[in-house]
């Protein structure tokens, strides 16, 4: 594809099947305390993204 570049993402549809273990952190335990979402949490059952590739800090929070 010349004009469309797809960024690697976790498929939400597939996660319907391979997700749902319930071991992830509850959102408010993290840093916000007043306006939490879940998007910036990490799944505890998948391999974290390679920090060097994404620039993400994936250490525990």
């Amino acid at each position: 594809m010349q004009r469309i570049v797809t960024i690697k993402t976790r498929s939400l549809s597939k996660s319907l099947i391979d997700g749902g273990c319930g071991q992830c952190q509850t959102s408010c335990q993290s840093a916000c305390k007043t306006s939490c979402g879940v998007a910036n949490q990490r799944c505890e059952n998948t391999k974290p993204a390679d920090i060097s590739k994404t620039g993400l800090q994936t250490k525990a929070r």
Binding site: R10, S15, T26, C28, C32, P48, L56, T58
Partner: peptide, 28 residues
């Protein structure tokens, strides 16, 4: 890192968690 810009696109939460939300009043 700015917390609200942190987004792990490849290893983020599954759809179960995204629908369950932060867990207020149920898990938390």
């Amino acid at each position: 890192n700015f917390y609200h810009f942190m987004l792990d696109l490849t290893s983020g939460p599954c759809i179960h968690k995204r629908i369950a939300g932060c867990g207020v009043g149920t898990e938390y």
